[in-house]
């Protein structure tokens, strides 16, 4: 379990351009942070930097007492627009694979699909799903394999009002269970969250 996500004096660069610098954040277990900022401010880059995909120009990211490599291998979920789901494969094949790759059983994947009301869609090819259904399919992986830290890139954007509320409940349960959420958003999250402005500190 990760006790806290700690970001210290972080600076990120993309393509030689400084996105932001001096970002510090301490997120204890059970709390959520909403990253807000204009397009291109570096919200997605920050999520990818926490996931270890983007090198840090300056500063540090710590996962409580856990080693960063272990934390990224077993304790982080990353979910965004690029969901890695292949259009020609069926929804079940994709969910089952990504759930297993995250260490979950097939039973857990089926339960997650039922929770997100995907069961009757599982035989369809991913290309036949609507944008909202496809997003729910990629979020089902988060329910199937419990991991402490969810990094979500615009998680609610393709969802309808009903599903936004229901995913809000799911996020609330995740926090109540000691989890953490860092989400890049343009609309407010339906859960209490610490707002972090990205890009304000850039010169």
């Amino acid at each position: 379990m990760i006790e806290a996500l700690v970001i210290e004096n972080l600076a990120l660069e993309r393509g030689g351009r400084l996105l932001f610098s001096g970002l510090s954040l301490e997120l204890p277990a059970g709390r959520a942070a909403a990253l807000v900022g204009r397009n291109g401010a570096g919200k997605t880059s920050l999520l990818r930097a926490i996931a270890g995909l983007v090198p840090l120009a300056e500063g540090a990211v710590r996962f409580g007492s856990l080693d960063a490599v272990d934390a990224r291998a077993e304790h982080i979920h990353l979910a965004g627009h690029q969901d890695g789901q292949k259009p020609a494969r069926t929804a079940w094949e994709e969910l089952a694979f990504w759930a297993r790759w995250s260490g979950a059983s097939e039973t857990a994947a089926r339960e997650a699909a039922a929770r997100l009301e995907l069961t009757r869609l599982l035989d369809l090819e991913v290309r036949r799903l609507s944008a909202g259904q496809r997003r729910r399919l990629s979020l089902a992986r988060l329910l199937a394999a419990p991991r402490a830290l969810w990094l979500l890139d615009e998680p609610l954007s393709p969802l309808d009002a009903d599903w936004r509320a229901r995913f809000g409940e799911i996020m609330g349960e995740h926090l109540a269970g000691g989890g953490m959420i860092v989400a890049a958003v343009h609309d407010p999250l339906p859960i209490p969250a610490l707002t972090v402005e990205i890009g304000e500190t850039a010169p």
Partner: peptide
């Protein structure tokens, strides 16, 4: 190439494998 474009490569790195 496809895994790189559709984000699968990102998710493949977030594993104990």
């Amino acid at each position: 190439e496809r895994d790189y474009e559709d984000g699968a490569l990102d998710l493949l790195t977030l594993s104990s494998v």
